[in-house]
Structures are given as C-alpha cells and as structure tokens.
Design a protein around this nucleic acid. Structure first.
Lengths: 114, 114
DNA sequence: TTCAATATGTTGCCGTGCCATATATGGACC
DNA sequence: GGTCCATATATGGCACGGCAACATATTGAA
C-alpha cells in the first residue's frame, strides 16, 4: 500500500475525475471529498490538501463545480461544491476517456503475455 | 479518439510501465516502441519523441533497461533496449501498482452509481 | 525531386501533485 | 487548564513528466 514513484505520477489528472464523481450525487466539501477518496480506494489513492483545494477552485473557475459556504454552529465553516450541468457533461466525457485509457494500457501490457 | 486534456495527464507515469512491458519479451528500439504503443492501444495512447527518448535514457541510467546500437545496411542505426533483471522486478511491481490504482479509481467513480 | 516513413535527438514551456507551513475550532483525556 | 488529535481551509515554491517545435539523416515510392 506504499506510494511508489509511479503511483504519484499516475494520479496526475485523476483527481479531477474523482472529485467530479464524488459530487455527482450530492454536494460535498473539500475535506469530505479527500476522506472519501482515501476510504473508497482502500488507502491506495490519496490527495494532499495542497492538491485538492486549488483543484476545487480550478474546477469552480471552469464552471464545472459551484461552491457555497455553509456555516453551522459547533463546526467550522465548510464550502460545499455541487456539480453544474456543464460539469456533468465533463464527468461523462472523462469517464469515457478514463475507461478507454485503461483498456489501451491493458492491451499493451497484456499483449506480451497473451 | 481525441486527446482530451485529462488524457494527457493520465499518461503521466504510464510510459514507464508501457516501455518496460514492451521490451519484456524481446529487445526493441524507440521508434518501434512508440509505434507499438499507438497500434496496440488503438490510437488511444501515444507518446511523442520528446517524451520517449529521454525516458529511455532515464530507464537505462536507472539500470532497468540496457541499450545497444545495431547497424544494418539499408536502414538507419537503431538503439535496441532489453529489460535487465532489475527492470523485470520493477515491471512486476509497477504492474501490481497499476492494477491496484485502477481498482481504487474505479471503486470511487462507481460507488455513486452502484 | 519531392514527399512520406523511418529513426533519433534537444530546448524550453506548462500543468499537476507534493512538501512545508499556516490558521482555526471542537472534543477527549489527564 | 493544558495538550493532543480530528476537522476544515489555505498557500508559496518545488519537482517531474509530457508536449510543441525544431533538428538531422536515410530509404523508398510517386
């Protein structure tokens, strides 16, 4: 479960897809997203705050997410992000692209042992 | 089959795995490797020379590949790379890591639609 | 003789993730 | 009261890998 050098590189670009996926069903805040990624991947995938928060702003700036501050007594303010209509299209496109990519890589790495 | 922005990022780190996989069975030269990646992925995955050749030197410097010039009449000189014993171990490790990573990503992106 | 395919190589840019550091609140434990 | 951990957001500067653009050189086909 260690983070090999390659795993660090593989992550590049995947954060977008993960965030968009996680806010698809309902709005979530940054910290929640980061914890969900870690939990659901069984600890294999993890993103540092220095990656996550800037990415959230980026996705919002692109119009794929829409963030809104929520204040509740007994807890710090949180910024909840929901998926916009445009974000939904991007998510669908990225999911297609991701599956295509995985198939491509697998075809290459498995061709030799076929 | 277009190269979305994300697909460019997803590729990061995958080139290593692909090259190691492709020279596993027998030595190959850079151009051949690049063509094989493109063909076997159905055009989905492609690496430019400015990524490929420097990467080959890097892998050789790390002792994962061993290159040797081959001159034949009727064709330009080619540098054939073979997988070293250490490279074989790295390949096995990277393959495990890659599969783990894919499972992790899929668990996250599919959890919502389950 | 021009063009495409083959084959290798380099400089410099850009995007994305990480390290380290920072701020701030609530609850548990001693 | 004080310490520590989990929660929650934020940022400056670095590292690294892929790309665009450019460069060189040979073979064979139109």
């Amino acid at each position: 479960m260690d983070q090999t050098a390659s795993q660090v590189e593989w992550k590049k670009g995947s954060a977008e897809l993960l965030i968009l996926s996680l806010v698809e069903a309902r709005p979530r805040h940054g910290y929640e997203i980061s914890k969900l990624i870690e939990q659901r991947s069984g600890g294999t995938v993890r993103f540092h705050v220095a990656s996550l928060y800037p990415l959230l702003y980026r996705l919002e700036r692109r119009g794929w997410l829409c963030g809104r501050w929520v204040e509740k007594s007994g807890q710090r303010r949180r910024r909840y992000y929901r998926l916009t209509r445009q974000g939904r299209k991007v998510l669908a496109s990225q999911l297609r692209g991701w599956h295509e990519f995985v198939v491509g890589i697998n075809r290459i790495t498995e061709a030799e042992n076929a």
